[in-house]
């Protein structure tokens, strides 16, 4: 019986992955509502669960691919692999309304550029201070400080090692969680009360999940304005990270 079930789960790896990820996200949603009363976004908890399971998988199997090193869960490797990841990222571009984006105007573009450059430079410098002195690692960790999507996409494009990629995701994830939890408390300091300020926030604070959750916890009406700019964030980071920013870092550190 159990062997038959095992065989089916292994043979249908990707489908198994869909089911497992679905359960994790449901669990994350429950934890988000019950434990944090919605203060920490469900997606952030789900990603933390994913990273925790990857840690568990890595320590049990001593492999490189986290949970995907269990034969039963190899489908997670396909679902979270480069093909599906890039496909889903490209699809999110569809949510950008060009007519609305124009309203964001110059200040949105300025904050988007600053929101890519400032975290990148800080992340890359801190990475260097901690001994990641090669251009690829500095760029990947710097990109992770932009968002947890830009980090691995940049890392994959320029050939970063898996541990640097994980570090860059961890950086982006910690940043997203700080934005989600900290925004309501820092809202007054940041002057978050108008659509324009929400757009500045969306450009500078980065991740869509961080921005939308952080703004929702502050003032529900701010959400669409911030998220609108934030949806450009990952695209801009993915465009600049492996190209201009990588070449700049390479030119500086050699």
């Amino acid at each position: 019986m159990l062997e038959m079930l095992n065989k089916i789960l292994i043979q249908n790896g990707l489908v198994t992955a869909f089911a497992c990820v679905g359960v994790s996200i449901w669990l994350a949603g429950v934890l988000s509502r019950r434990l944090t009363f919605g203060h920490v976004h469900g997606s952030a908890i789900a990603i933390v669960i994913g990273l925790a399971l990857a840690y568990f998988g890595g320590s049990v199997t001593h492999g490189q691919k986290g949970l995907a090193d269990f034969p039963l869960l190899a489908g997670i490797g396909l679902m979270g692999g480069a093909m599906f990841r890039d496909f889903a990222i490209v699809a999110t571009a569809f949510e950008v309304q060009a007519s609305e984006a124009r309203k964001a105007g110059m200040i949105g573009i300025v904050s988007l550029l600053l929101g890519t450059l400032i975290p990148f430079v800080i992340g890359a410098l801190i990475a260097r201070a901690f001994g990641y002195t090669d251009a690829v690692s500095m760029t990947t960790i710097g990109a992770g400080a932009v968002t947890y999507i830009v980090g691995p996409i940049t890392g994959a494009a320029i050939g970063a090692s898996s541990d640097v990629m994980a570090l860059s995701i961890a950086t982006g994830l910690i940043k997203a969680i700080i934005v989600m939890v900290g925004t309501p408390f820092a809202a007054k300091f940041m002057g978050l009360k108008t659509p324009r300020s929400a757009m500045i926030f969306g450009g500078l604070a980065g991740t869509v999940s961080g921005v939308s959750a952080g703004l929702a916890a502050t003032d529900r009406r701010l959400v669409p304005y911030g998220a609108l700019v934030a949806t450009f964030h990952t695209g801009l980071g993915c465009l600049l990270g492996p190209s201009v920013l990588y070449l700049a870092v390479k030119a500086i550190v050699g």
């Binding site: 994790s24 789900a46 800080i122 691995p152 994980a166 995701i169 940043k175």
Partner: peptide
Amino acid sequence: YIPVVVAMAANQNVVAALKGGPVALLSA
């Protein structure tokens, strides 16, 4: 997008990443 990112998180080499812990925390 988020489910795929969750799956992506689940296949990262977290064990190796944690050795560089303060980097992620400080950068963020």
